[in-house]
Simulated scan of single mutants.
Amino acid sequence: MADYSEKFYLVRSDILPEAMKKTLDAKRMLDRGKAASVYEAVNQVGLSRSAFYKYKDAVYPFQQMVKEQIVTLFFHLEDQKGSLSQLLSVAAEFGCNVLTIHQTIPIQGKANVTLSLNTTGMNAGMNRLLQQLQDLEFFDNVEVLSSGA
């Protein structure tokens, strides 16, 4: 018989037992302050306290289990008013946290920008972010210099 005690699995939410889903909902309510106690949270989601305590340390949202992701991007930026601001707005729109920004002094109307982002909270894929950045009219190209934790 296999020992499942320390193994982790990625499972689609639609096949989870209802008690596990409700445990996740109750934990989310507690984390966000929408319930003041376990008793209040389980009552709001329709779960017994015993089921909550059975699953609370065993089930987590996938995003909570993923390590912090740091990506460094490099841009050739045209020297236009507001271009860096638009770049940062796109990063924020995608849920990225800006860690560092380095911009060279513009020479012949162009500056190099290196941007390090924490993408842990990103609400879309990296390819969509890169495409949105490349669609901005003041960039020649966007390069990924590094990706990882």
Rank of each mutant, 00 (worst) to 15 (best):
K7L: 14
V11A: 06
R12D: 14
D14M: 00
L16C: 07
L16N: 07
L16A: 10
P17S: 10
E18Y: 07
E18K: 14
A19S: 10
A19Y: 02
M20F: 11
K22R: 13
K22Q: 14
D25M: 10
K27Q: 14
R28E: 14
L30E: 11
D31N: 12
R32E: 12
K34A: 08
A35E: 00
A35P: 01
A36D: 09
S37I: 03
S37C: 02
V38E: 03
A41D: 05
A41F: 02
V45G: 10
S48A: 03
Y53R: 07
K56M: 05
D57P: 07
A58Q: 14
V59W: 03
Y60N: 12
Q63V: 10
Q64W: 07
M65D: 04
M65I: 12
V66H: 04
V66E: 04
K67R: 14
E68R: 11
Q69R: 15
V71A: 10
V71P: 01
V71F: 04
T72C: 00
T72H: 01
L73Y: 01
F74I: 06
F75N: 00
F75M: 03
H76L: 14
L77C: 07
L77Y: 05
D79G: 03
Q80P: 04
K81M: 02
K81N: 03
G82M: 07
G82K: 07
S83Y: 14
L84S: 09
L87I: 10
L87G: 08
S89H: 15
S89G: 15
V90S: 03
E93T: 15
F94C: 15
F94Q: 11
F94M: 12
G95F: 02
G95R: 03
C96V: 01
N97G: 09
L99I: 12
I101P: 00
H102G: 08
H102T: 13
H102I: 06
H102A: 12
Q103G: 06
Q103Y: 08
T104K: 09
I105V: 10
P106Q: 09
Q108A: 09
G109Y: 11
N112G: 08
N112L: 13
V113K: 00
V113W: 02
T114P: 00
T114C: 06
T114L: 01
L115A: 08
S116G: 03
L117S: 06
G121T: 06
M122N: 00
A124F: 00
M126T: 10
M126W: 02
N127P: 05
R128W: 14
R128I: 15
Q131Y: 06
Q131D: 15
Q131E: 15
Q131V: 09
L133I: 09
D135H: 13
E137W: 13
E137C: 05
D140Y: 11
N141D: 15
E143V: 09
